[in-house]
Design a protein around this nucleic acid. Structure first.
Length: 429
RNA sequence: GGAAGGGUGGCUGAGUGGCCGAAAGCGCCGCACUCGAAAUGCGGUAUACCGGAAACGGUAUCGCGAGUUCGAAUCUCGCCCCUUCCGCCA
């Protein structure tokens, strides 16, 4: 969420930001609603002040009649104000964050800017296979059985794929511990506020599975609905909701480990085959809360990117770093990188597939979640929040299988994973 | 799943319709006393929003939301959460 004062004072900028971020929000209209809202607040509060004053002590019968009328008027105006507030808050949730000066402006991923490439691409002296074929031949992935049991985009991992799946998570968790992050497993079932707070709602609501019974139960009661998290980021942030931290405790560095669920509604037919786009996976995620300081937050964006890059370097996987454009980066983001890992089968995507996503949200999430800290002068400020993937699996297995395949149809296991797996090469059974 | 009890400021805890944004104690901050400290005494100690240059004024907040009432921490309803007992269970 943006500061309404900032929006008022930077109307033209915000209109440009909204346009470049493909936002539907109408800044002019928002400011009109804001003005109506403030006028109504003044009026209602004046009436309430009068009512409070006259109700301090027991009024007589004729005074009660007068106050009844006043009270009725307040109720009427409160209802009107409540409508206006709802519209206002609904719009405020949609107002995008401003973006950094070096963010490429554009309406889609074609405008994204490649920052760098790393690692040597494998040179195959044979016709390389894709991960689906390798997975089948080496009895590592069963997509048919997955679809049969779970539906479209279901999968089973088997044998060494399972070992690598968990080895990757272990590697990631140990690395984050080494970097001083506090480790957490996070809830996967989330209340709505956590997803509104992270910015996944309201815009991304279709992407999230809803659980529970939001309708009426047989006994007439209702039950609060919950949602299946698509990442541990919302839960990691919600851990700090309504907290006021001390400046000395910043930065807060937390690392979440959780299953992730994504409905992928709206992407039918996209990346339809294999493990690239699936409904459930595992992820280790890094989140940092730092001071209300742009330079510092940008440094953290780079540091977190460095950790993710180190994961890929450890794994010996070639990758590239892309800076996302205004139209592709998401409403709340100030600056964002994707790391894309080389996957020979991803010819349609220039052979690179997104495996990590590194974002600086400045205070946009903190304002939604009311996460603050007391600075040295005793003043409370909103924290800045950042997040990045450490590892998401099994998607990364695509890169491993495809990059590490051998002429004889076997697949080598990356050296760093071998000690976790207890196996060096995956051969045909 | 059944039964009962509860949720009040940083903490403990009083308050069952107006004098309550809320007693008292603890903690914290300032001052006094002291060579200094402890003890003691005095004073201060929530957040958000609206208005204001500011001083300050107003409104809201006693788990959350709705309702009754001229007036709600207090009464009613829904939701959330916690505790205890029973049942079931990885």
């Amino acid at each position: 969420m943006m500061d309404i004062k900032f929006i008022r004072e930077n109307k033209d900028l915000m209109k440009e930001v909204a346009k470049n971020k493909n936002s539907k929000v109408d800044i002019d209209h928002l400011l009109e609603v804001d003005e109506t809202r403030r006028n109504l607040i003044s009026e209602v509060e004046n009436l309430k002040a009068e009512l409070n004053k006259r109700s301090k002590t027991k009024p007589g019968p004729e005074e009660i009649a007068a106050l009844k009328e006043l009270s009725g008027k307040i109720k009427e105006m409160d209802a009107k104000l409540s409508d206006v507030e709802n519209e206002y808050h609904g719009m405020m949730l949609l107002v995008p964050n401003i973006y950094s000066a070096d963010t490429p402006v554009g309406s889609d991923d074609a405008a994204n800017k490649e920052i760098s490439r790393h690692g040597k691409l494998p040179k195959f002296k044979f016709e390389p296979k894709d991960h689906i074929t390798l997975g089948k031949e080496l009895d590592l992935i069963d997509l048919e059985a997955g679809a049969k049991t779970s539906g479209y985009r279901g999968y089973y991992l088997k044998n060494e794929a399972v070992l690598m799946h968990f080895a990757l998570l272990w590697l990631a968790i140990n690395k984050m511990k080494k970097y001083g992050f506090e480790l957490m497993t996070t809830p996967t079932l989330l209340r709505e506020f956590a997803l509104v707070g992270s910015g996944h709602f309201p815009e991304g609501k279709d992407e999230v599975y809803q659980i529970g019974n939001p309708g009426r139960l047989s006994d007439g009661s209702t039950k609060e609905e919950t949602f299946l998290a698509g990442t541990s980021e919302p839960a990691l942030l919600a851990y700090f909701v309504d907290k006021t931290l001390e400046e000395k405790d910043l930065p807060v560095k937390v690392c979440g480990f959780s299953p992730c669920y994504r409905s992928e509604i709206g992407s039918y037919g996209k990346d339809a085959k294999g493990l690239y786009r699936i409904h459930e996976f595992m992820k280790v995620e890094q989140v940092v809360l730092c001071k209300n300081n742009l330079e510092e937050s940008l440094e953290w964006l780079e540091k977190m990117r460095g950790i993710a890059e180190e994961m890929l370097q450890d794994l010996g996987l070639p990758y590239r770093v892309v800076q996302l454009s205004t139209g592709d980066m998401g409403t709340g983001k100030y600056k964002m990188y994707d790391i894309e890992t080389y996957m020979p089968s991803m010819a349609s995507k220039n052979f690179y597939g997104e495996t990590h996503s590194d974002s600086n949200l400045t205070d946009w999430q903190a304002r939604r979640l009311n996460i603050k800290y007391k600075n040295k002068d005793g003043k409370t400020e909103l924290v800045y929040t950042l997040n990045n993937t450490v590892i998401a699996t099994p998607r990364i297995l695509i890169a491993i299988l495809e990059n590490y395949q051998q002429k004889d149809g076997s697949v080598k296991i990356p050296k760093v994973l071998q000690k976790y797996c207890g196996v060096k090469v995956i051969k045909k059974k």
